[in-house]
């Protein structure tokens, strides 16, 4: 294990963790503030990838295609909020799970109608394809771009929620929706905006990852479960918790895949280590979640308890 390998895996892990944070952020906000379980949240991630792929074909400009995908995602978020999510606020989680599962299937089928069953590869501009030397380590430029973009968005989100009127309203509605309403906050509109914001964040993550993995129909169902695990580890409703847990998950997953077999080989026979390592690393974040829930049933950073009924 030399330093270069560790450094490049560190970058991979950070990049994965930050993208997972973008997906988990919207999820933890809708779950924490609206108390709505959205299994269809992964669909926004998938749509972000396909929107940007189509816009790239249209405009030929990659950064523009990602930016233009955002309003489309927000609009999709608004529509699904109005039609499926809003009637289910304050209803049983079971009904929300069923409805959003149905919505996931519907969006998946529509995406297959529009884009076909096969994935779409996305070609990056030439400048982003190369390698850069950072602290003596050669790293792919695009992964650094993802890290920078995701960090910037995370900072913006922090400012938005903690240093703006919108953020005060969101936190008021989360703490006590009835009192917030009585104080003249239009909670319907606030909920819709929050939902759209979450959709845009997840879609941005999808658009950013697509040049590496390509846009595919299955990507939404894969990411949503990991995002749920992250927000449960972090504490449902906590943005800070989602950030820490997402980075943890990204790093554990990446390092597990890269180094677990050599680590295990030191204590186990080589053959046993080679069979156990992939299984263990694939399950690692789920094991982490089980451990966290045993030690702290409400997650690492549980937000203060809600007051009043939704």
């Amino acid at each position: 294990m030399d330093a270069t390998l560790i450094a490049s895996q560190l970058v991979n892990g950070l990049q994965l963790g930050l993208l997972l944070f973008l997906v988990a952020a919207g999820l933890t906000l809708t779950l924490g503030v609206l108390d709505y379980v959205n299994l269809a949240h992964g669909a926004f991630y998938m749509l972000g990838a396909f929107f940007s792929a189509s816009l790239l074909e249209l405009t030929g400009d990659w950064p523009l295609s990602v930016l233009l995908a955002l309003p489309l995602l927000g609009l999709t978020g608004l529509i699904t909020e109005r039609l499926v999510a809003r009637p289910l606020y304050g209803k049983s989680h079971l009904a929300q799970v069923l409805a959003s599962f149905g919505l996931l299937l519907v969006i998946g089928a529509l995406a297959m109608l529009i884009w076909g069953a096969e994935g779409r590869a996305i070609a990056l501009p030439h400048a982003l394809r190369g390698q850069a030397r950072l602290f003596g380590v050669v790293l792919p430029v695009y992964r650094l771009v993802i890290i920078a973009a995701a960090l910037a968005v995370a900072a913006l989100l922090y400012v938005l929620l903690h240093h703006s009127r919108f953020g005060v309203r969101v936190r008021a509605a989360a703490a006590n929706p009835r009192v917030a309403q009585a104080l003249g906050i239009d909670t319907h509109r606030l909920h819709a905006m929050l939902f759209a914001l979450g959709a845009m964040l997840a879609g941005l993550a999808g658009a950013l990852i697509a040049p590496i993995t390509e846009a595919s129909l299955a990507m939404g169902a894969q990411v949503i479960i990991i995002a749920f695990v992250i927000i449960v580890i972090g504490g449902i409703g906590s943005l800070r918790g989602a950030f820490v847990a997402a980075l943890l998950a990204g790093l554990i997953d990446t390092f597990g895949r890269a180094f677990l077999d050599t680590l295990l080989a030191r204590v186990l026979p080589l053959e046993a280590a080679e069979t156990a390592a992939p299984a263990l690393s694939a399950m690692s974040i789920y094991i982490l979640m089980a451990l966290v829930l045993i030690a702290r049933p409400r997650g690492l950073f549980p937000p203060p308890a809600r007051g009043g009924a939704a």
């Binding site: 499926v84 069923l98 409805a99 149905g102 919505l103 969006i107 109608l113």
Partner: peptide, 19 residues
């Protein structure tokens, strides 16, 4: 082949009705 579309819509309807 797009049978998930009507199936998903049905799921949503069942959930909304149940709620």
């Amino acid at each position: 082949v797009y049978w998930h579309l009507p199936f998903g819509l049905l799921l949503i309807a069942v959930a909304l009705m149940q709620a």
